[in-house]
């Protein structure tokens, strides 16, 4: 079961010097870690560096990193309730490899995130607490995927699909999907907005 800390790492969007320093300070071998970091910085183009410290303080570089920016639209209606939202990744066979986030209130209605619930939600009770959160008001949000599956193992190179689903009480359901390849060489994808969700911008490094 991923810890809250791991999830924070999974959500780390990009290289954040301040955060790194803190983590390095906790490392038993800060000097070595710093050297590793420096060597990584030396060989990689700046935009591909996604250094996140793992639980033991070692530095990992994730070139399989997916950055996502999306909008929950403002919907003018008398009966507005914040939508339930899920974002997850499926492999080329449609099997869910990782849930990135789930926003909900009562789990009773999680089934209304129809695809997410069927593909993965109903099998992942233990893995979900770490990625669930309360529903959110309209706005712009960011997410990222560190290229790891539920077990924390890096996924193989190949084709994947990012899925976004939103369902609102007394409103619509939106399902947005985008296929992408890993590694993605910095390619950017844009998904047009559905009635409850989007637009979405995905950058695959």
């Amino acid at each position: 079961m991923p810890s809250y800390r791991n999830i924070l790492q999974a959500f780390t969007l990009s290289f954040k010097p301040g955060q790194l320093k803190t983590s390095l300070g906790q490392s038993s071998q800060p000097l070595l870690a710093a050297l590793v970091l420096l060597s990584v910085l030396a060989v990689m183009p700046a935009h591909q560096v996604h250094a996140t410290p793992n639980a033991t303080g070692h530095i990992e570089t994730d070139i399989n990193n997916v950055e996502i920016e999306f909008t929950l639209p403002v919907i003018e209606t008398g009966q507005y309730q914040r939508p339930y939202v899920a974002a997850w990744v499926e492999d080329s066979k449609g099997k869910a490899v990782k849930t990135l986030t789930v926003w909900h209130e009562d789990k009773k209605w999680l089934k209304d995130l129809r695809r997410w619930w069927r593909k993965t939600g109903r099998y992942q009770e233990e893995n979900l607490d770490a990625v669930t959160g309360a529903t959110k008001a309209p706005g712009r949000f960011t997410l990222s995927w560190d290229g790891k599956d539920y077990q924390g193992n890096p996924v193989k190179a190949g084709q994947y699909q990012l899925c976004f689903e939103a369902s609102r009480e007394h409103g619509d359901r939106s399902l947005l999907k985008q296929k992408f390849n890993l590694p993605g060489q910095g390619k950017t994808y844009r998904i047009k907005a559905g009635s409850e969700l989007g637009p979405v911008e995905i950058k695959v490094l």
Partner: peptide, 11 residues
Amino acid sequence: HEFNLSGEESE
């Protein structure tokens, strides 16, 4: 009326 349920408590 429902074929699939997701709640935490019996329904």
